[in-house]
Every structure is written in C-alpha cells, then in structure tokens.
Amino acid sequence: MNRRPRIRAVVAAGVAVTALGTLAAGMGVAQADGKDRARERDVRQGKVTEREIAGLFDRWNAALRTGDPEKVADLYAEDAVLLPTASPRIRTNHAEIADYFEHFLQKKPRGEKVRSVIHVLDGNSALDAGVYRFHLTDPKTGVTKAVDARYTYEYEKRDGTWLIVNHHSSVLPAEG
C-alpha cells in the first residue's frame, strides 16, 4: 500500500489550516481599522458618505446667512416640496420657495443641528432628519430667540449636484 497520497493529503491539510490561522490573525488588525479603510475606499470610488450629506446642511445654512432668498432657493430642485416651519402653505416650486425665504430671512436665521440621523440610500439619494435650533431675530424689536424644530431633508444628486427635493420643518412640540 502506497502511503504517499495520504501523507500529501495530511500535509496539504496542515498547510491549509496554517494559512487559515494566518488569515484569521490578520483579520483582527483589518477589523480594527476596517471602517476607516472602507470609508477611504468609498471616497476614492466616489461613494456618498454621511459626512458629505451632513455638509449639505452647512451649505444651506451658509446660504441663509447671505440674506439672499434666491441663493437659498437655488439649493432646492425645481420640483422640490418645502413644508416650512413658519408658514402654513406648502411650497412646490422655485418661486414659492424663494418667496418663503424672502420673509424668513428677515429674521436673520442662524441654524445649528441638535441631533441628526443620516441615511445614505444610494449614490444619488440620502435623508437627513433630526432636530435643529434656529436663532431668530425679531426685525421690529431686535430681540433674538431660539426655536427648536424637527426637520427632514431628502436630497438627490442631479446632474452632479446635490439638491433638496423634500424639506419638512416643524416647531418641536412641548413634551406632554
């Protein structure tokens, strides 16, 4: 009886087990920084990151600070829907959205996120929902007050540009 095939099989199995052990040991290191590597890969491949989506609020907030309603409205898609905080009217086109901001900007709003939950849906769409706080100045008295509101932004990348397609904002109700 020839024992060589059995010996080869045992040696081959030992090599496979050793290779698996080496691979498993290396995975501990890979898992520790795996998220960082995945983020770097996503950025290199042009994938959307939560940080990128969070930056869209900063862009919107900066447009508010210009005081120009057209600059703010330009961040919305032509077919966007705005359910604004300070108006009962639903705004569904550029002119209506610009009109809302013409009045809202008189209060010199300065926004800040209190809590944000971002969901990247795919390479061209994302949601950002949470609570933000606006510091609003009464144009008559000059008194500034803080107003907390719930928000949802739905973003779509169209022709390479992120636009707001749906924005809902409502004053945060009192606990009760």
Rank of each mutant, 00 (worst) to 15 (best):
A77M: 02
A63P: 03
M27Q: 13
Y76R: 05
Y155Q: 07
V43E: 10
L172H: 09
G21S: 03
A9G: 04
K35S: 05
A24S: 11
H119S: 09
S87I: 10
A86W: 02
K157A: 01
R150F: 01
G176H: 07
P84E: 02
A16H: 08
R65K: 08
G26A: 03
Y100A: 04
N2I: 07
G142S: 12
D122F: 13
V143L: 05
G111F: 13
G111K: 05
P173I: 04
Y76S: 05
R91I: 00
E112T: 11
W60N: 06
E175T: 00
S125M: 08
L172D: 05
G14H: 09
L83F: 06
G130T: 03
K35H: 04
L136S: 09
A80G: 12
A54Y: 07
F104S: 13
Y76F: 10
K47L: 10
A63E: 00
A73H: 01
K71E: 04
A62K: 14
V165R: 02
N2H: 08
S170T: 08
R91K: 14
A146M: 09
N124H: 15
L56E: 08
G111L: 15
L105Q: 07
L136Q: 06
K145S: 02
A129M: 07
L127P: 00
A86K: 07
V11L: 11
D58N: 09
R65P: 00
V143G: 11
A13M: 12
P139D: 14
H103Q: 12
Q45N: 09
D159N: 09
A62N: 01
A95W: 01
F101R: 14
V147Y: 09
R89M: 14
L163Y: 12
T66D: 04
Q45G: 03
M1T: 08
Y76H: 00
G176N: 12
T49W: 10
R8P: 09
L121K: 14
V131G: 12
A73C: 02
V120G: 01
V165D: 01
W60D: 04
A77K: 02
V171Q: 14
K113F: 03
A86H: 06
R65G: 08
H167Y: 02
F101W: 15
G21C: 05
R37P: 14
L127S: 00
R110Y: 07
